[in-house]
Design a protein around this nucleic acid. Structure first.
Lengths: 335, 335
DNA sequence: TTGAAAGCGCTACCAA
DNA sequence: TTGGTAGCGCTTTCAA
């Protein structure tokens, strides 16, 4: 692992100064002979510029960080797949931080920004605490937050409205003929759990239905919990639709219903949320509320890039509306 | 975005030299008063060391790159989820490269290593060409390759044996009573497609069965293709088991079988490959051959870390054997 | 133990 | 147009 050639060896090989080498390589010269000479020398000695030295001088790293809870989560995965190519187009490398839903980790990421190892950050906080807000007050580099942020925080922010999304799902199930619409939620003390439950109730109300607590169960956001919760509901009351707070839960509900001999959507309609690939590949394919993860990722990337390109307008706030992807697990009623 | 304080402001605030600040911060001093003074000054001016400047001086970036085709692929996802926390333990940040299965991109990644923006690389090549081998001859930083590598290439390498894995699946289906075992493959001209088909035939032979081309179909590695291919097979011949070349294909096969009114595993057993979360969450849960993606990721991380910690032994080569995860989509026979 | 100073490899200013 | 040179912010050697 011998040390790589530096700009000095190139200069010596070309018989010119290091300034000329730098200029030739960065296109800041108009002498084609010089360029040719330098290029030849570069090839000869096998020179590749040091990214670190360039960064120290230019104060730019060409790197952007994306911090989220867990890349295994389908929503974040969708974002990364959108963000990475977009950043790459502009010559940025992507750095991944998995915070494992640890608030301290998120704060650490925010504070480590002062080390200047990246030019910007896209952050998906699991929760927004006072410490987040404090750390976001004057970040060392531009930051874009994906998720809900209090209005007074002056940081670019792209969000969605899962409450509204849950309402969409309920209204769709109602339109398909359902009257006893069960809801299987994740933990109620999480931001998404809270919002989705609120949307569920709001949807019922909008359809003129009462909230019946017999129809509501809570687990975590996984398949097994969705299945178990649905079984509990089936054991105590009648149901003609199940709305799962995410696709995993809805998938579990389908398993429970199938085991109980109910046909989908004939006997019971099922809808989920997040519109992951799981929804496409399940049997039957699952109707799901899309929260626009891909789109939010793309928008966040654009916002950050705009800042890095010198954008100086006040903090932006974009909301991606939820939308319903209807598949065979529910009944579609044409108008 | 005012410029951050440097070590000089700390030195001035503490009334000492920058060398003393550096020493105090890096634990290279034995004067507790000095440490206290410096710490106070650091806090006072809000100093955070520049990662870039440190890198230039120490010739280490604290970053490691992971390059694969597409993070959306469940196998690579599993690897990242294993690699990232492990690297983090040792203080390394993870950089993600998605090459979109473009050979030129992979070569670019390899060559860009000379820019020294990372301390090491874990590479999952989609195919190994002469250009790869050339680029791997003397990489600027340590590299670990996940995948098949010719023996003469002196690079740390962790691999699996999907041929052997396919054979495992076939033998398991046979043991469960299957005699007409269909195989739905992905493209035969890919490395995995080729190996899995070879393993399928080998498994049949080991069980004393003939290869019947009526039982073999090809599509791509997706659910829809698996479903369509299975329908084609069902239309022309009898089947009592379907082995899908990956979990997506197997899932598609289950859809086709269910639509045709066949019970799983009563009428037809189904097995897949890769043992992704899809296999756990399908209905019924899918028996699948694990190619040890998580484990391979973990081993690759350990290998790289060993190099970075100064390991200088000759190139290692580790093979993770495939294993079968039996779930409800097949019949288990106890001995 | 402390401080001065020499770089790490590059870019960009300033003179020539 | 070219070359010398001053840093970018840090670590580490060398004297004091």
């Amino acid at each position: 692992m011998s040390s790589r050639p530096t700009i000095h060896q190139v200069a010596k090989a070309a018989g010119v100064s290091i300034s000329s080498v730098s200029r030739a390589l960065n296109g800041n010269t108009s002498n084609p002979e010089m360029v040719a000479k330098v290029r030849a020398a570069v090839k000869q000695v096998g020179y590749v510029p040091s990214a670190v030295a360039q960064s120290l001088k230019t104060q730019q790293t060409g790197q952007i960080a994306f911090a989220m809870e867990d890349i295994g989560n389908a929503a974040y995965l969708a974002m990364v797949r959108e963000i990475q190519p977009r950043l790459r187009e502009d010559g940025y490398r992507l750095l991944l931080h998995a915070t494992a839903a640890d608030v301290q980790d998120e704060i650490d990421v925010l504070e480590s920004l002062a080390q200047k190892y990246v030019d910007g950050l896209i952050l998906c906080p699991i929760r927004v605490t006072d410490r987040h807000i404090e750390a976001l007050r004057s970040p060392a580099v531009p930051v874009v937050v994906i998720g809900q942020l209090p209005d007074h925080v002056g940081v670019d922010n792209v969000r969605t409205d899962s409450r509204q999304g849950a309402r969409l799902a309920v209204e769709h199930l109602y339109a398909g003929g359902a009257r006893r619409i069960a809801f299987v939620n994740g933990p109620a003390d999480t931001v998404p759990g809270h919002a989705r439950y609120a949307g569920y109730r709001e949807g019922l109300r909008a359809c003129g239905l009462e909230v019946d607590e017999l129809l509501v169960e809570v687990g975590d956001f996984q398949v097994a919990a969705g299945q178990a919760a649905t079984e509990r509901i089936l054991a105590r009351t009648d149901v003609d639709a199940v709305f799962g707070a995410n696709d995993l839960i809805a998938l579990g509900a389908m398993h429970a219903l199938r085991s109980a001999g109910r046909s989908i959507p004939g006997d019971v309609q099922v809808a989920g949320m997040d519109d992951t690939t799981l929804a496409e590949t399940s049997f039957p394919p699952l109707t799901s509320v899309s929260l626009g993860s891909r789109e939010r990722g793309g928008i966040a990337a654009e916002m950050l890039l705009a800042r890095l390109h010198g954008g100086t307008e006040p903090a932006q706030r974009v909301t991606v509306p939820p939308s319903l992807t209807v598949r065979q697990s529910t009944v579609e009623v044409s108008e």
